[in-house]
Write a protein that binds this DNA or RNA. Structure first.
Lengths: 381, 381
DNA sequence: GGGTAATAATTTCCTTCGTCAAGTATTGAT
DNA sequence: ATCAATACTTGACGAAGGAAATTATTACCC
């Protein structure tokens, strides 16, 4: 909640719209939100008084030219700050974001062991460093992003393979240590939220984000809401079967996308075709770039698998757009064309029109995702 | 709308809950809908006055035993009737349903040609026959189900391959001819709505229905709402690629579920392995049932493909349950075990817990789906 | 410059719709 | 009979948004 006293629904709607879709006049907001302009005026007033919104000077005219110029409402981005931290198996990456999720500061900590107490201690020191400067006084919230099975509503990390955590009540633990209001979310979902609120998914009723790296993950927004899955499973694009005769996957399936295009799968295949058991992923990338046909074919096959997986998403839920990001592994641009090709081939009918953005996102963007979740928690509660 | 004067939101919520979840006391409704019991009382009153709800006699006691007994509210199913018609390439199948979507009468008409005018004439005669009896006076709405690309909101059939229709304004045409308020919906979506409101999907926040027949289709409910897809495509499970080296599909893809398990794909493969170019689908079924290993393998492969497709749905959106129905082609029970096996193998983690109901639905159920859409249109508008 | 039309924002009044709290109804237990 | 428990109803109240009149500000025209 932006204020102790609950705000009217219209106020929340106005703030969310201005936050995600940029400065808008009251009349424009009324049209977009299907409200009367009176309701927008009333909803916006307390937000202005609290310092969350401000009125901009009238800009250029629109339409025929006559009439009172609009005074667009804009978010005062520095009204409040948010810390976001992505917890990986060997590092904490932290950022401070403003209300518009712009990164204002960043820092990180190595993580020798994934011991919970030690992580919390590192986290405290990281947050302390990040908030130095003018941030501390205007920061109330911390978002954490963890890979694995996370229960957002309770802040419980049910199972995180990379960290080896089971049933860690991370939210309450972190709130005790840090003294900020904490949100905990799955990392892919956090990144998806960031893109949905502040990135390429803005305004999309449905939207998908696919991450390619060690694992292949997918965050899904349908009907404006993040999909969670009734049994806690959703977005497991990595374990869609795309090749009935493909390699066995560690999940027990066969020919999963991840078994063809996950980082370890690529290394394994590259080692086999190159006959060099010590080969690393960078080696494989170098060989492929140098024109090694056999290793290149491994990447081609991986690209085909990813494209087919993405096409499955497009065919099933029909998102307005799909972002494919590579966890900072820029090497994946190597098979970007093959992803597009395979997607086009397997997307059915108009699903092929779904725009695909393929671009690596640095780790800081994952931390920003965590901050975004805490922004969303502030606004929509 | 149930009445000319718009009803309060609570009234609609109450009616929908009683309709889909059976008789419920006001207090139980208040709990379920997160309303005060006063709001339920006020919302229910006009519905009782209009004859849509009735108060049942108190049933058996619940809880400790003391206290005034609840008087459950129940839908008066015969308050209003609805006609539903499924339009196939060669037949009209029609039913009359009551408010609870119970079929009260059914009839059909052969359809020599899919000419629009002729279809409308047959439709008029079919509806006329169906409404004979006591139905006519209490019937205001007709639902139509058509395969292909249908715009529910405008009632426009954009493209229906089986009928050869393009941009047919079916709703307005039918309303002129029939004199009822008409809704037009895609047939798979209609069937999905029926299962979601009155079948196995009741109460599920997310739900999927897969139809196996000439084509392989899928209706998807996520967040309580039918998924439509931003580009008009959704639920195209038939064109998910499950075999990178599988046969080419008419859609331009390769190894699609439909290219392995669609009716024509099965016939084609069975002809090839049996060396009998005149083989029909019933022949293939008979051979497989008689123990022909090669033809049996065709069905096995088809079952694998369907199971993999269903697993993709479970992995991506995590529905609470999945219904697989066979368009009346009961032969498909032949590969039911293989579907389950393949699903279990490819469903990731807890997604494998998703209950699968595999059962053929007769064509009348599709017509019932059409009627359900018109019921929903009445209630939620 | 003054009038006029157009558009934006605000204000006032009103309706809708739900909650709260008090009261009524109906039962079983003592 | 009395009491506790539960279900339902009622009436007062308040939050929230809409309709329409009002004010504000501009461009355009003469």
């Amino acid at each position: 909640m932006l204020h102790e006293a609950a705000l009217a629904p219209a106020a929340t709607a106005v703030f969310t719209a201005v936050l995600t879709e940029g400065p808008l006049s009251r009349v424009a907001l009324a049209r977009r939100l299907d409200l009367s302009s009176a309701a927008v005026t009333k909803g916006a007033r307390p937000l202005i008084e609290l310092g969350y919104l401000e009125e901009l000077a009238a800009t250029e005219r629109t339409g025929p030219g006559a009439g009172r110029p609009a005074s667009p409402l804009a978010v005062r981005a520095d009204r409040e700050f948010f810390v976001g931290v992505k917890i990986t198996g060997d590092e904490l990456i932290g950022v401070v974001c403003d209300l518009r999720a712009e990164i204002r500061a960043s820092a990180h900590r190595p993580l020798p062991t994934p011991d919970v107490d030690q992580v919390l201690a590192s986290l405290a020191s990281l947050v302390d460093e990040l908030l130095d400067g003018d941030f501390r006084a205007r920061t109330r919230r911390l978002g954490l992003a963890v890979s694995g099975d996370v229960d957002y509503s309770t802040g419980l990390v049910r199972y995180s393979p990379f960290l080896g955590w089971r049933d860690v009540p991370l939210r309450s633990r972190a709130e005790q240590v840090i003294g900020l209001t904490v949100t905990v979310e799955n990392d892919v979902k956090a990144l998806t939220t960031a893109e949905h609120w502040f990135g390429e998914g803005v305004g999309a009723e449905s939207f998908a984000l696919v991450t390619v790296g060690a694992g292949i993950g997918c965050g899904l927004v349908v009907g404006g809401r993040l999909v969670s899955g009734s049994h806690g499973v959703a977005g497991e694009i990595g374990h869609i079967a795309v090749d009935a005769n493909g390699p066995d996957c560690h999940c027990g399936g066969r020919g999963c996308v991840e078994a063809l295009a996950g980082a370890s799968a690529i290394v394994r295949q590259a080692r086999a075709v190159a006959g060099r058991p010590e080969l690393t992923l960078p080696d494989a990338v170098a060989l492929a770039r140098a024109g090694d046909a056999a290793v290149g074919a491994v990447f081609d096959r991986a690209g085909d698998a990813i494209g087919a997986g993405i096409a499955a998403v497009a065919n099933l839920v029909g998102p307005a757009r799909i972002v494919v990001s590579g966890e900072g592994l820029s090497a994946y641009d190597l098979f970007e064309p093959r992803i597009r090709e395979s997607f086009q081939r397997q997307a059915f009918g108009a699903a092929a029109d779904c725009p695909l953005s393929i671009r690596p996102l640095p780790f800081e963007q994952w931390a920003r995702g965590a901050a975004t979740v805490s922004i969303k928690a502030l606004v929509a509660s």
